[in-house]
Design a protein around this nucleic acid. Structure first.
Lengths: 112, 112
DNA sequence: TCTTATGATGTGTCTTAATATATCTTTTCT
DNA sequence: AGAAAAGATATATTAAGACACATCATAAGA
């Protein structure tokens, strides 16, 4: 399983696409090779925390641990934040939704 | 830097203590050696995402990526969730506050 | 078509997380 | 004090992340 890694990987990919960055562009900003970013986004690696944090920083995301009981409430807020605020941002919606069509394969070993 | 690792490590430690678990007890639940949990909580290792996710699962935490703009709002909700709901839970507050006295050393290499 | 941009994939090397195991220190009891 | 529990630390081994680098496949544009 480890579908949580799939979720995180997908979040990274969507955030990158929302920002209109190619893997190579992100690679230069964050200092991680494009080949590795590809593997990360496809869930092909069990990345280290430092890599995730660096990616998150450049993508203006914050990695946090939320108590399960608070998850629903935070989820609502986050979805709200991700909603484009200006009509000129509808473009983002398109990029975003096309991104969510992508299936993550996640060939990580089934541990647990 | 990588103070975000310190933050995550501290969150794990506090969640464990709030649940009244020893490192060894958590070790058995999650299948990670106590020695490694110690290193994780002290920020002495740059742990892998699977380890963090496994720990979070057992500690009933969810690892999420929050847009920076939504961070304040989610922070408020999370603090609310962490507040003990019953008077009988004041015990947790004590454990929790004693935990926060601990300084993390974080001898991780200064990258960036 | 040829080029260009993008993402995916392969290989070899180095580093280090994760493991097993043991031990040591510190704290907390009785 | 001594015993027990808890956390920190040491060592050796194994597994795999991260890297550099090249290359492949595909799609988009000229």
């Amino acid at each position: 399983m480890l579908e949580s890694i799939a979720y995180i990987a997908q979040q990274i990919k969507e955030a990158r696409e929302t920002k209109g960055l190619s893997q190579r562009a992100l690679s230069e900003k964050v200092g991680i090779p494009q080949s590795h970013i590809s593997r990360i986004e496809n869930g092909a690696v069990n990345l280290q925390l430092s890599s995730l944090i660096e990616l998150a920083r450049v993508l203006e995301l914050e990695l946090i641990l939320v108590p399960k009981e608070a998850q629903k409430a935070t989820g609502a807020i986050i979805r709200e934040a991700q909603r484009p605020k200006k009509k000129s941002d509808i473009h983002n919606q398109l990029v975003h939704s096309s991104a969510s069509k992508n299936r993550a394969k996640y060939q990580l070993d089934d541990e647990d």
